[in-house]
């Protein structure tokens, strides 16, 4: 009985003493921080994607409260959330167009063959180090999902060996852009309705040999679009994203290889070919 009592008293006293010490230390060593930082951090998406150029959402919130950044610099927040933060801090939201990533390649497993069998580490960067990758087209998507893993929002899906960005999920943070060893991923305005899903600068017949969905440089789309909407870069048609054409261009052109598509059509067709394959 005596032992139990002593244990009880000793532990209670120690606990209380330590509690008091910590409490005093908390008061004494308190660090004054801007209380708004925490609240703003909570309003941010919390994905820590780094799309704003800061080390994470908390760091961005700190910059916002210090007036070093504008709320719109966060690519992952919806316009409403940006407005809310701007109103909370009493600053202007700042401008800026919403962007999304797009993988400019249409060479899935069905349309573009492999030149060799790759059995190494399942990563695009690793694969591209060995003779530039196993894909027949040396400019096409390697389909080993480096960008898929890089996306903090799970917005990229691998369909039939081809990476496809889901526009409705993509926030345009740009994490995937640098990951692609073939530089196929571009950040484009979210409003752009048509893309040329090919990035190979080679001549039409050369491309045709390795991929049946390549841009063969026939200029049909450039002729059908308004002046300056589609530009020819050598043998490759490129949508001018400063002056993007409307979705009607796809029908007007009738692209012979079908690499001029809307993002929705692109996804629909690739899922269809995957089912066939």
């Amino acid at each position: 009985m005596g032992t139990a009592l002593i244990a009880l008293v000793l532990l209670a006293v120690t606990g209380a003493a330590l509690g008091v010490i910590i409490g005093l230390a908390g008061k004494f060593f308190a660090v004054k921080t801007d209380p708004r930082i925490e609240q703003v951090t909570e309003m941010l998406p919390g994905a820590n994607c780094g799309g704003c150029g800061r080390a994470g959402c908390a760091d961005f919130a700190k910059a916002l409260c210090a007036g070093e950044a504008a709320p719109a610099a966060c690519p992952a927040s919806s316009p409403e959330a940006v407005e809310q933060i701007a109103a909370f801090l009493g600053i202007s939201a700042g401008g800026g167009e919403k962007k999304v990533a797009v993988v400019l390649c249409g060479g899935d497993k069905t349309h573009a063959g492999q030149a060799a069998h790759y059995n190494g580490v399942s990563d695009c960067v690793s694969a591209s180090l060995i003779g530039g990758g196993a894909k027949g087209c040396t400019f096409g998507c390697l389909g080993l999902a480096s960008c898929v893993r890089a996306c903090p929002f799970n917005a990229i899906e691998l369909v039939n060996g081809l990476a496809i960005v889901h526009n409705e999920i993509c926030t345009g943070c740009g994490n995937c852009v640098d990951k692609c060893p073939r530089k196929l991923i571009k950040l484009v305005p979210k409003t752009s309705e048509v893309h040329v899903y090919c990035s190979s600068p080679e001549k039409g017949p050369t491309k045709k040999k390795v991929c049946s969905a390549a841009c063969i440089g026939c200029r049909k789309c450039a002729k059908n679009a308004e002046e300056g909407q589609v530009e020819m870069q050598g043998f490759l048609a490129r949508v001018n994203y400063n002056n993007p054409p409307s979705a009607g261009l796809v029908e007007a052109t009738g692209c012979p290889t079908g690499c001029l598509r809307t993002p929705e059509e692109h996804y629909r067709q690739e899922t269809a070919t995957q089912e066939v394959a």
């Binding site: 032992t3 002593i6 000793l10 532990l11 606990g15 330590l18």
Partner: peptide, 11 residues
């Protein structure tokens, strides 16, 4: 007081 070792250490 050795039997209080673990409790005290955790505290």
């Amino acid at each position: 007081l050795e039997f209080l070792q673990i409790l005290l250490f955790i505290l």
